[in-house]
Design a protein around this nucleic acid. Structure first.
Lengths: 240, 240
DNA sequence: CGACTGATTGATACGTCTCAAGGATAGTGG
DNA sequence: CCACTATCCTTGAGACGTATCAATCAGTCG
């Protein structure tokens, strides 16, 4: 049960030039100047599958960027219900920024994960001396807010089938996968259910349905062959 | 049907000192220095009840702050379903910030509304010369993101009764209302339903239920006497 | 191989939606 | 000021979608 592949020590830094390069992966709006500055204050850390990165309520003294692997952000209720607010993939930024003292979610590694960790204090200081950085963070937060609001539509107004289709389309887009390609599902069915506000059984039934309609195929349970992204889009065509 | 109380012209500016003061209402973390700078680029605008402030997809060249009244942010689906992502009250900031070119929601006035309008270009420029401003915006966005994620729990994992209780508690907190006080509901039942992912009928039934249990009373349909906030909290006690 | 974890499928229950009607409220014009 | 009307709110009966409970199946690891 105990996980041994624990986070590397803070002393384990790689070349900052490499960090800078990794930081800017998938973030086109971040200037190289900004990346360099961030590379200098970032530390590479590793978490094993299912390991906790931080807990809801913990003091938020770091921000993170995903280098590889998948992270989930969860909210838990007292009676054990769980809502996964977001899955974070390579290039995504998360954690504590200016003006937030405590983490408002639990972050856990869905797969083995490599992150860059940025101390909030240094990040704030850097923000004042690096003009582009604040704008970059504002832009990142604005986009996350926008995506989260789109997810409100999924949870508030879509059927089970539409939710699963929306989820697969989102993943496919972020993984830059097209019709005919296969898509990795790093998270289990329960994670998908808790992201979509469904039960694991309903998620299974919908996927089975998609399989029967020939829209997807399941070579392995963590992998999914997307025969027709257009058909998925048709399912959520209700979207604006 | 047509609404005549239209927005005041851009030329209708009040004293910037007054604007600055209004801007900082309810935003403790914004320094007076920041407020002054914002006051100088802000313009006071008015929208009548049910009027559209901007549409989903419109070019986002302004950010706004609510001075008085209530605004709703909605996402619409092709087939007419609607999800209200947020209700914005006095002190709330919304609209376009750095890095977002298009509005991702429709903003409408729930009641007659007074806003401060800030041109994004000037806001960006001001951000570079006013150190506190960017941090303030990062903080505002972080908090909105946090609240929106909490709303994901409501939509994904709560029952109808819990949703309505959560909603009333949220409103009560933002309006700084306590047990025994009465709470204004500027929005109609349909708006509440579209915010909570329910139908108007279900919202009505739950409110009737709360009335029967003596937790609330309804003097007018837009007003609600909160007999016991503790009882509402008990309903959502499942929350972490 | 056996045991465990996660995924799938089935039968039934329950909560919320849908459709339909009636009641209250607010705004309008005589 | 009162009827008139439109809009919104409320309540009821029945349908539907998803949850729940239970069993089986499939893949993984020791």
């Amino acid at each position: 049960m105990a996980i041994v592949l624990n986070r590397t020590s803070v002393a384990d830094r790689s070349l900052s030039a490499v960090q800078a390069g990794l930081f800017s992966a998938r973030s086109e709006s971040s200037s190289s100047h900004t990346s360099d500055a961030l590379g200098r204050i970032g530390v590479r850390v590793r978490f094993a599958k299912q390991e906790t990165i931080f807990n809801d309520g913990d003091r938020a003294d770091h921000a993170y960027k995903v280098i590889s692997g998948t992270v989930r952000l969860c909210k838990h209720t007292q009676d054990g219900r769980r809502q996964i607010a977001d899955f974070l993939l390579a290039g995504d930024v998360f954690g504590g920024f200016s003006g937030v003292d405590e983490h408002s979610c639990t972050a856990e590694a869905v797969s083995d994960v490599v992150l860059m960790s940025y101390p909030k204090l240094q990040l704030d200081r850097l923000g004042n001396s690096t003009p582009g950085l604040s704008g970059y963070l504002i832009s990142v937060l604005s986009k996350k807010l926008l995506k989260t609001r789109e997810h409100l539509v999924v949870l508030g107004r879509q059927t089970a089938k539409e939710r699963v289709a929306s989820f697969l389309l989102n993943l496919a887009e972020r993984a830059e996968v097209e019709s005919g390609d296969s898509l990795d599902l790093p998270m289990g069915r329960q994670d998908i259910a808790d992201h979509l506000g469904l039960t694991i059984e309903t998620v299974c039934r919908v996927i089975t349905d998609l399989k029967r309609s020939g829209i997807v195929a399941i070579p392995h349970q963590n992998q999914l062959l997307l025969n027709s992204i257009a058909a998925l889009r048709a399912i959520v065509s209700s979207e604006a």
